[in-house]
Design a protein around this nucleic acid. Structure first.
Length: 553
RNA sequence: GGCCGCGUGGCGCAACUGAAUAGCGCAUCAGAUUUCGGCUCUGAGGGUUGGGGGUUUGAAUCCCUUCGCGGUCACCA
C-alpha cells in the first residue's frame, strides 16, 4: 500500500504509513486501527463492518453469482469426440474442464451456450463400419448387451488388428512395409467406403447412421453419468463442407493466395508463423477450412455471441493460433474474443494412452471404479443407517465423482497430469470428499438447530466478534471476486482452491468455538447463520465444478 | 533445429499477475479434542522456487542466457 506511492511522494515509508494510517482511523468509520511494519501499513477493520457485510449477504441465495446479461453471450465448445470409440480419460479432463468453465462464465454474468462438434464422419468411422461388416456377424448392442460405443470401439480395434496382420503377410511375401501400409486391401476398402459415403451411397449411409446411433446412445449414458450437458450439437457431417466460400472470398480480399497448382494458402510469416494451406489443390477442404466455416456458422446461428471458447488439448495450440489469426484477418470483430482453453495431456505411469494398443483408461470404467472406492470407504465410516440401498449407491457415486472431478479440476489446466489408476485418487486432504464432508457436517448442525435462527444479529447484541468469525466472513467476502477471476482466467482451479480455503477456515472455526453449545443466544444464532452461509457457498462453488454435495456421508 | 508450454520441500499442488518469514495436502514426528459427525484441529522438521546473469526499494512472477521434460512443425484430423 505504501510502496507504490513512493514513486510520487518522496519520504520514509514508515512515516508515510503512520500518517496515512492515523488519517484513515480518524476519518473512515470502517477503520478501527492500524499499524506499520517494515513500511507496510496494516489497517484494522471494525467489527461493525464485518457484521454489516455478513447481514447483507446472509439471506442472498444467489450470493456471488452475477445475473446473466443477454447482450454478453459466449459459446463454449468441449468434448467433441470421434464416433468410432468410447470416451476415455482424456475426454474426461476435457469434459470436466469445458463444463466447469461454462458454468463459471455463466456465474460471472455471461449467457453461455454449451456446444460440441461431433466428428461423425471420416476414415476412422469407416474403419469401424468395415470391420463390423466383415467380422460383425450381425452383432448389435441389443443382442450382445454391450454399450453401443463399446461395441463400435471393438470393431475399430478389430480393424486395426486385421490391418496389421495383412501388412505382416504382405511384408512376409516380400513387399516393402511402407508400400504395404498404403496398399493393404482392407485399408483400400475403408477408403472406398469413405468415397461411397461422400457420394451418398444408400447402403453405406444407412450403416453409418445405424452405427453412429449406437454410439450416441452410449455417449449419452456416459455424459449423463458424468453430469455434463450441451445446449447445441454440431455434426461434422453437416459442417465439413463449410468454409470453402469463405476461402474464395478471402482470396478476393487478399488474405489468401492461390498457388499454381490451385491450392490456397495464407502467409503468416510476418506474424512469426508459417504458411498454412486452407484449400487443397483438388479444391477439397482441410481441417482448417472447416473450422473457419464452422466458427462463422455458429455466429450466424447465435447472433448474440461475441466470443467462443474451444476446449481442446494443447497439442493443437498451433492450429488455434492460426485459426484465430485467420479469422481476425478476415475481419470478424468477434475474432478478438476467441479463446483456446488449452489443457495438458493426461498421461499414465506407462506413458501415453493409445486406444489401438488398449492402454486407455475408459471413462465409464473409471467412474465406476471411483464409485466403488467411495463405497468401500464410506461403509466403514459413514452415518448412513437410514439410507436405502439406492440412496447409498447414489451417494457413493456423488463422492466418487466428487473425488475424481476435484482431483482433475484443482490443477491448472495448462499442466499435464500423471494419472495413476492403481493409486487412483485421494479421498483425504485437499480433495473433493474432504469438502463434501465439511458440508455434510454443517448440514448435521443445521438439522439440530431447530430454534429460530432467522433474526438479524447486531453488534450490540454480541459485543464482539470472535477472531475466527471474522476470518470466516473475510473468506466469504472473497467469493464474488473469485468467480470473476476464475471467469477471466478460464480456471476452475481458482474456484477449487477458494472452496478449499473456505473449508479449512471453517474447520478451524468449528474446532475453536462452540456453535450449538454456545450459551449466548445471539452468538449462537450468528454462528449457525455463518455455518449455513459457508455451506451455501460450498454448494454454490462446487456446482461451478460440477460436483454435488451430500446431506450425510 | 524453429516455435509453444511446463520446471516450486521426498511426492502432489498454491501464491490474488511485482511485495512482508514462498503457502497447503500426502508422508514423517509431537500434541488436542473423542456428547455440534475424528474423513477434524494445533504444532514441528523439511526450500539457495532447475542453473547463471539482469531490471527493481522489492522477483517464483518481468528480461536475457542455459539445462531438463512435453507438445508441435502434413494438400491428417
Amino acid at each position: 500500500m505504501v510502496f507504490p506511492m513512493l514513486r510520487f511522494v518522496k519520504g520514509n515509508p514508515v512515516q508515510i504509513g503512520e500518517q496515512v494510517g492515523a488519517f484513515l482511523e480518524k476519518e473512515v468509520t470502517e477503520v478501527s486501527g492500524y499499524n506499520v511494519i517494515k513500511g507496510f501499513l496494516n489497517i484494522v477493520i471494525s467489527d461493525t463492518f464485518y457484521l454489516d457485510f455478513f447481514n447483507g449477504i446472509k439471506d442472498k441465495s444467489d450470493y456471488g453469482l452475477v445475473k446473466e446479461s443477454a447482450d454478453d453471450a459466449v459459446m463454449v465448445e468441449y468434448s467433441s469426440p470421434n464416433t468410432n470409440k468410447p470416451l476415455h480419460l482424456g475426454h474426461v479432463r476435457n469434459n470436466l474442464l469445458g463444463y466447469s468453465v461454462a458454468e463459471i462464465l455463466k456465474a460471472s454474468g455471461k449467457k453461455v451456450y454449451k456446444t460440441q462438434i461431433i466428428n461423425d464422419r471420416g476414415i476412422h468411422i469407416c474403419k469401424s463400419m468395415l470391420a463390423w461388416q466383415k467380422f460383425g456377424k450381425g452383432e448389435t448392442p441389443e443382442n450382445t448387451g454391450l454399450k453401443g460405443d463399446k461395441l463400435v470401439g471393438n470393431y475399430y480395434v478389430a480393424f486395426d488388428k486385421a490391418y496389421k496382420e495383412e501388412i505382416a503377410t504382405m511384408v512376409a511375401s516380400g513387399i516393402d512395409e511402407k508400400v504395404a501400409k498404403k496398399e493393404a486391401l482392407i485399408l483400400l476398402d475403408a477408403q472406398q467406403m469413405l468415397q461411397k459415403w461422400e457420394a451418398g451411397d444408400d447402403e453405406v449411409v444407412s450403416l453409418w447412421k445405424t452405427m453412429n446411433s449406437w454410439v450416441y446412445k452410449g455417449f449419452d449414458e456416459t455424459y449423463k453419468n458424468m453430469g455434463v450437458d450441451f445446449d447445441k450439437l454440431y455434426y461434422e457431417s453437416d459442417t465439413y463442407l463449410l468454409g470453402k466460400d469463405v476461402v474464395a472470398d478471402g482470396i478476393k480480399k487478399g488474405v489468401f493466395y492461390k498457388k499454381e497448382d490451385g491450392s490456397v494458402w495464407i502467409d503468416l510469416t510476418n506474424e512469426g508463423l508459417d504458411e498454412k494451406i486452407v484449400l487443397r489443390s483438388d479444391g477439397t477442404a482441410v481441417y482448417m477450412t472447416q473450422d473457419i466455416g464452422t466458427a462463422i456458422q455458429r455466429v450466424k446461428d447465435y447472433a448474440d455471441i461475441n466470443g467462443m471458447v474451444y476446449t481442446v488439448g494443447n497439442e493443437q495450440d498451433y492450429h488455434f493460433k492460426v485459426l484465430f489469426l485467420i479469422l481476425k484477418k478476415l475481419g470478424f470483430s468477434w475474432a478478438e474474443q476467441l479463446y483456446h482453453l488449452s489443457y495438458g495431456m493426461v498421461d499414465l505411469p506407462s506413458g501415453k494412452m493409445k486406444s489401438r494398443e488398449g492402454t486407455v483408461v475408459d471413462a465409464d470404467d473409471l467412474m465406476n471404479d471411483m464409485t466403488q472406492t467411495a463405497a468401500t470407504i464410506s461403509e466403514e465410516l459413514g452415518k448412513l443407517e437410514e439410507y436405502s440401498t439406492d440412496e447409498k449407491q447414489e451417494l457413493y457415486k456423488m463422492i466418487g465423482l466428487g473425488a475424481l472431478k476435484y482431483y482433475i479440476l484443482k490443477v491448472d489446466p495448462k499442466k499435464r497430469i500423471l494419472f495413476n489408476p492403481e493409486e487412483s485418487v485421494d479421498f483425504q486432504g485437499n480433495t473433493g470428499p474432504f469438502i463434501q464432508y465439511a458440508y455434510a457436517r454443517i448440514q448435521s448442525i443445521l438439522r439440530k438447530a431447530d430454534f429460530d435462527s432467522g433474526t438479524t444479529v447486531t453488534l450490540s447484541a454480541v459485543e464482539e466478534l470472535h477472531a475466527k468469525e471474522k476470518e470466516l466472513i473475510k473468506q466469504l467476502q472473497q467469493f464474488p471476486e473469485t468467480i470473476q477471476l476464475a471467469a477471466e482466467n478460464y480456471s476452475p482451479a481458482l474456484i477449487a482452491n477458494y472452496v478449499y480455503d473456505l473449508v479449512k477456515e471453517f474447520n478451524s472455526f468449528y474446532q475453536q468455538v462452540s456453535i450449538l453449545g454456545e450459551v449466548d443466544e445471539q452468538n449462537k444464532i450468528l454462528r449457525v447463520q455463518l455455518s449455513r452461509k459457508v455451506a451455501e457457498v460450498i454448494e454454490s462453488g462446487f456446482k461451478l465444478l460440477g460436483i454435488e454435495v451430500p446431506q450425510r456421508m
